[in-house]
């Protein structure tokens, strides 16, 4: 069997997910390179091949020009995998969707706000523009989960994301619950798979991996309110990584 050719492409993003792809144990990296052929990876290699089987896409789609590019990639790739929060949900980029272009441009770019090259439209997940075969969520992605997905694809099975919330991983690691320390956490409604990395270091989960399949949103709102959060703060917790809505594609 010839090695599948894989390629990485980035759109509106910090490229941190691709950095995680590279941030492997040496043996894992060797095994990865033995298993696949990387033909396009701007962050890691200079060669650029346009003949690939699996395309990993980091970043959200934020400009009309992005659409043309992602559609071209889709036509070439047998499988297209969204990599990270920006590509899966629009991520942090989609926070701007709730504000007018003038407001966010002035806020972010200040005196450079009038630069034409900073023009963009509402940030959207890759799936809003082309068919996505699989999503690896997270800000950034979990590098072990990336390897797991690659292995599944190599074995010819659909990769599985955990169907349980971050709380499960916290309990498996005997973490002290953030709520027990008087803090709040989005763990109870957020899809696991990150090995509860934030709570493991004493930081609250911010829901970067999106919700579990059946989140009890009302219960989460109640719990956050009970811990003293205002209605506005409660909403901020929910929308940090989940700002994109279907209506945004008309803007």
């Amino acid at each position: 069997m010839s090695k599948p050719k894989i390629a990485f492409f980035d759109f509106t993003s910090c490229e941190g997910c691709q950095l995680e792809v590279l941030n492997q144990e040496p043996q894992d990296m060797i095994d990865l390179l033995n298993a696949v052929e990387i033909v396009n990876f701007r962050e890691a290699i200079s060669d650029k091949g346009q003949d690939y089987d699996i395309a990993f896409i980091e970043g959200s789609i934020s400009r009309p020009a992005d659409e043309t590019r992602i559609k071209k990639i889709r036509r070439q790739a047998k499988l297209l995998v969204a990599l990270g929060a920006c590509a899966c949900t629009g991520g942090l980029n989609a926070i701007k969707n709730k504000y007018s272009a003038e407001d966010y441009k002035n806020y972010v770019y200040k005196d450079k706000a009038h630069y034409e090259r900073l023009d963009s439209y509402a940030a959207r997940p890759v799936s809003a523009v082309v068919k996505v075969d699989f999503e690896i969520p997270g800000c950034p992605i979990n590098r072990f989960e990336f390897l797991k997905v690659v292995k599944s694809l190599l074995l010819g099975v659909t990769p599985q994301l955990p169907e349980y919330p971050v709380c499960v991983e916290c309990k498996m690691k005997d973490n002290v619950c953030l709520y027990q320390r008087g803090e709040v956490c989005m763990g109870p409604v957020t899809r696991a798979g990150c090995d509860a990395i934030c709570p493991s270091f004493g930081e609250a989960c911010t829901g970067c991996r999106g919700f579990v399949t059946h989140p009890n949103i009302n219960a989460q709102k109640d719990v956050l309110a009970k811990h003293g959060l205002s209605a506005e703060d409660v909403m901020l917790n929910f929308t940090m990584f989940n700002n994109f809505s279907k209506e945004d594609t008309t803007r």
Partner: peptide, 28 residues
């Protein structure tokens, strides 16, 4: 009001249910 998060089972000293999963090394 339940999150169905599984915490109660996992911290319970008498809960012993388990899942069975496969792990394949990257060398396949």
């Amino acid at each position: 009001k339940c999150f169905a998060c599984g915490t109660c089972n996992l911290v319970c000293p008498t809960c012993y249910c388990f899942n069975i999963s496969e792990t394949v090394k990257l060398n396949l």
